[in-house]
Design a protein around this nucleic acid. Structure first.
Lengths: 359, 359
DNA sequence: TCCTTCCATGCAAGCGATTGCATTACCTCC
DNA sequence: GGAGGTAATGCAATCGCTTGCATGGAAGGA
């Protein structure tokens, strides 16, 4: 049986109140007494009951983290960042993975973390108005990644600027026919990131005097396979793009696969740029927009720490910078983009030279 | 202020005891009363205080999950599996990411989940004897992935058989000079998986009458970069291998990168087989040993559920099957493996034909 | 009709901490 | 030497629930 605070009190010959204070490092405890209490606790290998403690104090020492998909690279990275900071401050991490729709609904209908957490971190979740209200009504500090929710702390990247950079990179390489593989078609809930990026894509094209062509926007649903299909669709257009911006690396990977299977190469035939700087991006030599992933998790956790200690500060909003990482899948536009091959595949092809060019 | 059980009791005009029983679906509550209580709870949007509840009952409704690296693909997949099962049974998931050494030590010295969880799931962690004892001394059911710990539930793959299959696959393709990129050099703690696999590798070679060559075993530390270096090292041997078994896909990816950078191809120059069937494996057309990842997580969670409900059953041990997935990076051994190139790179090279051969 | 059973419910004692307030002891300063 | 302070400690209420036991009433059996 685990020792209780009473056992420690008896052994140290003090009251439980003193034990509690000594163990938590409060002032008003003499050095000698503290020493005695610590020893007693040590000898009994005592540890406080977190439940009793939070029942009495009202604090839970726990932060809830709500994630759409733990098993996706991006979220697991962010999670690692959050964890490292929370852990360093002895806060526990209660994980809620909302992957599937049913779980998502159930979560919001039952609100299982009411009274269970001191604060909440929400990752990049499409939230309906009612849902964000439900969260706010928990009356704990909330830090949100990606989406902006009134009254909540907030970390994000500048999606408009980042997407613009990606598209501008392609334009600067001479491309005029530029496709975009988008995340998803209009989600009714407030998942604004794809919308912002798409808008940036259109704006930059317009600024460059390139006419808008809806056929060049194809949804890839953030997955490799769907990204692959999206690329296939783009390549089957009467006038296929010479460059493609995929708003996630995963989709870009799919796009590259399609390219490979069709015997085409990046960047000679089609330039491809992704978004995220996924760990595999380097492996595949994918040009992409890098965002600091783990770091965003750390920032979120730090905001929570501030909120928890600082009291009633104004929620802060942090925008972290992204950066264009040029690798081997983007290159100068070809002169005559109307057809891909002069000679049919298979057959000998010149070695890639433009890789060096691209760097 | 959140409503307490007292408020509900008053509103439903019953005692708190009855409220408690009604809400938890215990028998001994009349249908009419239950109805009344549920309505009252609903109207007050009441939810039980988990802390008070577990303080009173001794159950926490929480399962601790200890993970070495949440941000690695494998673990995040397993975690998703665990989560889905726990969630379905309304158990909370308390995450402990033990990534770095300091966190690991601190975890075991403070045992922060004493009294905090009803059960524990430990993923593939290298544990010293003292550490596993510390876990067992928590006196809660424990399910362990990978390593076997006496008295604990257990899920794993048959590492010996799986590794043997991988090596046999290479031998059957005619390879005689087969390298292995191993996880890590002897970890003092009980991380046995790499040892078992290495042993299988040696055994199978011996059975095939292939002499043992220690130079062909190179550590790749489970990372892409280290895997890449390992491959480089293998290729710089006086007699390089014609095939390589990397005991994780990540390391295999690194190996493929090295191959690519050296202008070599898989499988024409070197066959490569990985382990895990990482999501990127398909993308890179990597032959590998697939293990059911998410499923193992589900199994672990289910074992915990059994343990929690069943009482004092004997801990069960489940071994899940793996399967060889032949893709494009393994192929028949070349006839004269002493040199790779007749012509130096760069230069035109014939298209890969053997891909079809390999399938 | 009276005595058992049994079901539904209430009472109240915990569960193991935290914390406001009271108390004691010891200084310090006039 | 007494008033006023301060630092260290104890007392006991409290947090919000669960649960063993007691109780009352209705149903069933003889």
């Amino acid at each position: 049986m685990a020792a209780s605070i009473m056992d420690v009190a008896r052994r140290a010959e003090v009251s439980t109140a003193t034990v509690s204070r000594a163990l938590r490092g409060l002032p008003n405890v003499s050095a000698a007494t503290r020493e005695r209490v610590l020893r007693a606790a040590e000898e009994l290998s005592y540890s406080v009951s977190p439940h009793a403690s939070s029942l009495a104090s009202g604090r839970t020492g726990t932060v809830g983290v709500v994630v759409p998909f733990v098993n996706r690279w991006f979220y697991s990275q962010v999670l690692a960042g959050i964890d490292s900071v929370l852990r360093a401050h002895d806060l526990d991490l209660l994980l809620y993975n909302l992957g599937d729709e049913r779980v998502h609904e159930r979560f919001f209908s039952r609100m299982p973390l009411r009274r269970r957490v001191d604060a909440l971190i929400v990752l990049n979740l499409p939230l309906s108005g009612a849902e964000s209200e439900a969260l706010v009504s928990l009356e704990v500090p909330i830090a949100v990644l990606g989406t902006r929710v009134p009254g909540c702390w907030h970390v994000s990247i500048d999606n408009a600027e980042s997407a613009s950079t990606a598209v501008r990179h392609l334009i600067n390489l001479g491309h005029r026919r530029i496709g975009m593989i988008t995340a998803a078609p209009g989600d009714p809930r407030g998942f604004t990131t794809p919308i912002v990026r798409q808008h940036a894509y259109r704006t930059v094209l317009a600024q460059a005097g390139i006419p808008y062509d809806p056929d060049l926007e194809v949804p890839g649903h953030l997955s490799i396979d769907k990204g692959a299909s999206a690329m296939a669709q783009l390549l089957s257009l009467p006038r296929p793009p010479t460059a493609v911006f995929a708003e996630s690396d995963q989709m870009a990977f799919g796009a590259l696969r399609t390219l490979g299977r069709m015997g085409l190469r990046a960047p000679q035939d089609v330039s491809v740029i992704g978004f995220d700087d996924h760990e595999t991006a380097e492996l595949l030599d994918l040009t992409t927009i890098a965002q600091p992933v783990t770091h965003q998790g750390e920032l979120l956790a730090r905001q929570i720490l501030d909120a928890l200690s600082g009291g009633s500060e104004e929620p802060s909003q942090v925008v972290v910078p992204t950066r264009l990482v040029v690798r081997g899948t983007t290159g100068a536009a070809r002169e005559h983009p109307s057809r891909y091959h002069s000679t049919p595949r298979p057959g000998p092809e010149p070695d890639q030279h433009s890789r060096t060019t691209a760097r």
